[in-house]
């Protein structure tokens, strides 16, 4: 029993950790100024065919970025305020299109009223890369149980692109690449040892984005 416990503890320590790599590009060495009252909005890219940048991840990064001095507008509220111009079909993919969209007086007014200075586009997903092992569960009138061992590798790859709406320029790009392996051990009861790959990607990206901005407020 002690051996199994030790084995589980080892797996817990060694197995449930993620490897996270962050690449950052900035157009300038200086931090991005956010004037008092100005806000940042995070938006998910949803035009790719085979994956979807989920709203939950966008919200998570927004929560990490938000602070007492940096105001972050919730994605859905902003999408509703600019409806239908930020839907998957209509969202501007480049700065040229964004500039043209801002020429619409109603769009420009909403962005000015909401005091949005920066758009942060988030694009990416969390995928299961590899699965191994097998676990089988059985249930009968006398009891139930699971036996075996399964593992799977997950990768979260996300990129954040920051647009400055004051001069329609791309000012920064941050890419986070997080990988980890989760385990499920069937020892009568299934024991999951889950690696929080997506959560780590969110934390790392949020922290890195936070370091980009400096608020006057």
């Amino acid at each position: 029993m002690r051996v199994i416990g030790l084995w589980l503890a080892l797996l817990g320590v060694a197995g449930c950790s993620t490897t996270t790599t962050i690449d950052e590009y900035r157009s300038s060495d200086e931090q991005l100024q956010v004037a008092s009252g100005d806000r940042v909005v995070l938006l998910g890219r949803r035009d790719a065919g085979h994956y979807e940048t989920d709203a939950e991840f966008v919200e998570c990064v927004g929560d990490k970025l938000r602070s007492s001095t940096l105001a972050v507008m919730p994605e859905q509220t902003f999408m509703d305020a600019l409806y239908p111009w930020l839907e998957p079909r209509t969202a501007p993919k480049g700065l040229l299109r964004m500039r043209r969209l801002m020429q619409e007086p109603q769009v420009a007014k909403v962005i000015a009223d909401q005091a949005i200075r920066y758009f942060v586009w988030l694009d990416g997903s969390t995928e299961t890369l590899d699965k191994g092992g097998s676990i089988s569960c059985a249930a009968g009138p006398g009891g139930a149980g699971c036996f075996g061992f399964a593992k799977w590798d997950k990768a979260s790859i996300y990129e954040a692109i920051v647009w400055d709406l004051s001069d329609f320029t791309e000012v920064a790009r941050v890419r986070v690449d997080s990988e980890g392996t989760s385990y499920l051990i069937g020892a009568v009861a299934p024991i999951p040892l889950l690696t929080p790959v997506k959560s780590d990607a969110c934390k790392s990206l949020g922290k890195q984005l936070k370091a980009l901005f400096v608020s006057d407020g």
Partner: peptide
Amino acid sequence: MSPSRPLCWVFCALLL
């Protein structure tokens, strides 16, 4: 009652 019986009901419910 066997301690694994509640687990059995959970599995049956999940299956159904």
